[in-house]
């Protein structure tokens, strides 16, 4: 393994390039002597205090990514949701509406296929696809490699579309400024309670597909109330990427969250 990702070497790839390098010291080369070679009755067992976070390695990569973004004044946003919430449609509309005003780039995470990156590239905005194989989330190391090939411009906004999964991506910091959970009104309004970790970790909840509300039993206010139970500080935007309703508030949110004093504001 070259990162904390559990998907196994050779299963994660970025645009078809297998991520299979081995960092120095990776091998299991801790001594050649047979185990338990000590004399019976003279146990060499000892206690070792460790106090190390399991996610420490991922967090180191995430901190490096965060420094990289800060140096270039890039706003990185980590978009998380269930499959089918309309993440990619939201992104496509955002890119088409905003590409004249703001430099943007996209990292797409999916288990398989480059369909989403292909959809993004059709807007004229550059994108790179990370396929996680059997992995259920993006990790900071993979994102760091994607940045090398994507090379987002200084002062740009980078959208990272995570693997569709409301569980695992909550634990993995990618170095983003904010996690954004997208929930569509065709899903259950109690998802914030069913998957509290993700809503707790997010700065913003986007309630998507609100044009469908007249046809559904979805109680938006109740859903928002649930989200605020797990995260009293979470911001909420209601919009429809299909009709465009509410999209201006989303664009204002993105601009307001770019770092202060940023040059090249549009």
């Amino acid at each position: 393994m070259c990162s904390v990702c559990g998907c196994g070497e050779g299963e994660t790839d970025i645009e078809g390039q297998a991520r299979n390098h081995r960092p120095p010291g990776h091998g299991h080369d801790y001594g050649q002597e047979p185990a338990h070679a000590h004399a019976p009755g003279l146990s060499q067992a000892r206690m070792v205090q460790i106090e190390k976070d399991i996610l420490g390695r991922n967090n180191e990569y995430a901190a490096a990514n965060r420094r990289w973004f800060t140096e270039r004044n890039i706003l990185a946003l980590n978009l998380v949701s269930s499959p089918g919430s309309g993440k990619t449609s939201l992104l496509v509309r955002t890119l088409l509406d905003r590409k004249e005003h703001r430099l943007m780039a996209v990292i797409e995470g999916d288990q398989q296929t480059s369909h989403d990156a292909d959809r993004i590239r059709q807007t004229g905005v550059k994108a790179v696809q990370i396929n996680t194989g059997k992995g259920c989330h993006l990790d900071a190391h993979g994102v760091g490699h994607a940045l090398e090939s994507l090379a987002p411009e200084p002062d740009s906004v980078l959208f990272i579309e995570n693997v569709g999964n409301l569980v695992c991506p909550a634990a993995f910091d990618l170095g983003e400024a904010h996690k954004i959970t997208i929930l569509s009104v065709t899903e259950g309004e109690d998802k914030p309670l069913k998957y509290p970790d993700m809503f707790h970790a997010s700065t913003l909840m986007i309630l998507n597909k609100i044009d469908l509300l007249p046809h559904l039993d979805f109680d938006a206010d109740r859903c928002i109330g649930y989200a605020r139970r797990v995260n009293p500080r979470i911001h909420v935007l209601r919009l429809s990427a299909a009709t465009g309703e509410g999209m201006d508030a989303w664009y204002r949110w993105v601009e307001a969250n770019r770092q202060p004093g940023a040059p090249g504001g549009g």
């Binding site: 990702c5 559990g6 190390k52 993995f172």
Partner: peptide, 16 residues
């Protein structure tokens, strides 16, 4: 099933 990833993280801590 990110627990498998977390266990890989445990192994990294042990190896370090």
């Amino acid at each position: 099933m990110h627990e498998l990833s977390l266990c890989e993280g445990v192994m990294q801590v042990l190896e370090d």
